[in-house]
């Protein structure tokens, strides 16, 4: 158990490289470079970064959808396999679950919301019949939906409702950790607030640990206690959310913060007129 350290996630020296193309066009990208981090039991760690920062790769390795090239992941006190087999993934799924960004693709459009939840329930628990239905209703209730929503197809639900079903599905495995990959990014502002409140409430009631992946610093401020800032596969700054957002040390963190629209904010050129930005030059190469 994680009792000795109080950390439910311990990641050490995690690296991952992707190779794309064939033959002469072969190129490789370092998605993760020697990433080390810990997440305390019951806390929320925000992982902040822009596209290409490696934040999604980190999430996928953590839940077992991807294998790492090097490094170690200790989940709830147990080291997890680098190249997860099916049985290993199933065991891991009871510790950690993931909520994805896309509210349109997060549910099978031909199956009801209820069946999405019961699929996970039956995968991990011996439940069937009336007991299964009761558990599905119970989970729907916890995410603010009604039993009738169980019979709805994804197309009959709004984006916010679909994301609530996706959260209920993740909770069905009774995990200790939820990985939320831009889980509120695609939602309307008014719905986003509802889901953020729901997530906060669930964390409190179920004593969950969150790994909250986002590009949105306002969301980071609202949900997390700790934050790591990632850029091109590396963690470039870490610390308490207040410290990192109020007194950022790394120039990139400062740039991120200064780029976030807020009252009184003006957009500005990072480096003034006519100067190249590293990202653009890289893409042009």
């Amino acid at each position: 158990m994680s009792g000795t350290t109080g950390n439910v996630i311990e990641i050490t020296g995690l690296s991952k490289r992707f190779t794309t193309g064939r033959g002469g066009q072969r190129r490789s990208v370092d998605a993760l470079v020697d990433v080390t981090l810990t997440v305390a039991d019951g806390s929320c760690l925000a992982v902040v970064g822009e596209s290409g920062s490696g934040k999604t790769t980190l999430a996928r390795i953590l839940v077992g959808l991807e294998g790492a090239d090097a490094g170690q992941v200790v989940l709830a006190g147990r080291p997890v396999a680098q190249r997860p087999r099916r049985a290993e993934r199933r065991a891991r799924a009871r510790d950690i679950q993931m909520v994805f960004q896309d509210p349109n693709g997060s549910l099978n459009r031909r199956r009801t919301a209820g069946s999405a939840i019961s699929e996970v329930l039956t995968a991990h628990h011996r439940v069937r019949g009336a007991e299964l239905r009761r558990r599905v209703d119970d989970l729907l209730d916890q995410v603010g939906l009604l039993p009738a929503h169980a019979r709805a197809l994804p197309g009959e639900l709004s984006g916010g409702q679909r994301q609530r079903v996706a959260i209920a599905r993740a909770l069905a495995a009774e995990p200790r950790v939820l990985v939320l990959d831009e889980a509120v990014a695609a939602l309307d502002v008014s719905v986003q607030a509802q889901v953020l409140n729901l997530l906060a409430e669930l964390r409190r009631v179920r004593r969950l640990t969150y790994l909250f992946i986002t590009h949105d610093l306002s969301v980071v401020r609202q949900v997390s206690e700790q934050v790591v800032v990632m850029r091109r596969g590396e963690i470039i700054e870490r610390g308490s959310t207040e410290r990192v957002l109020d007194q950022p040390q790394h120039p990139y963190t400062m740039l991120l913060r200064d780029s976030a629209p807020r009252p009184g904010w003006r957009p500005r050129r990072a480096l003034g007129r006519g100067e190249p930005r590293a990202e653009d030059m890289e893409a042009a190469r």
């Binding site: 839940v63 077992g64 959808l65 099916r86 049985a87 290993e88 993934r89 199933r90 065991a91 891991r92 799924a93 679950q97 993931m98 994805f100 960004q101 896309d102 693709g105 997060s106 549910l107 099978n108 199956r111 999405a116 699929e119 996970v120 995968a123 991990h124 996706a166 599905r169 993740a170 495995a173």
Partner: peptide
């Protein structure tokens, strides 16, 4: 799509995920 990955994540077999989803 996320729903297929969510099913895969549960450690369901390839047959089940492919056939069901």
């Amino acid at each position: 799509l996320a729903y297929v990955q969510a099913a895969e994540l549960q450690g369901l077999s390839g047959f089940v995920v492919t056939g069901r989803h």
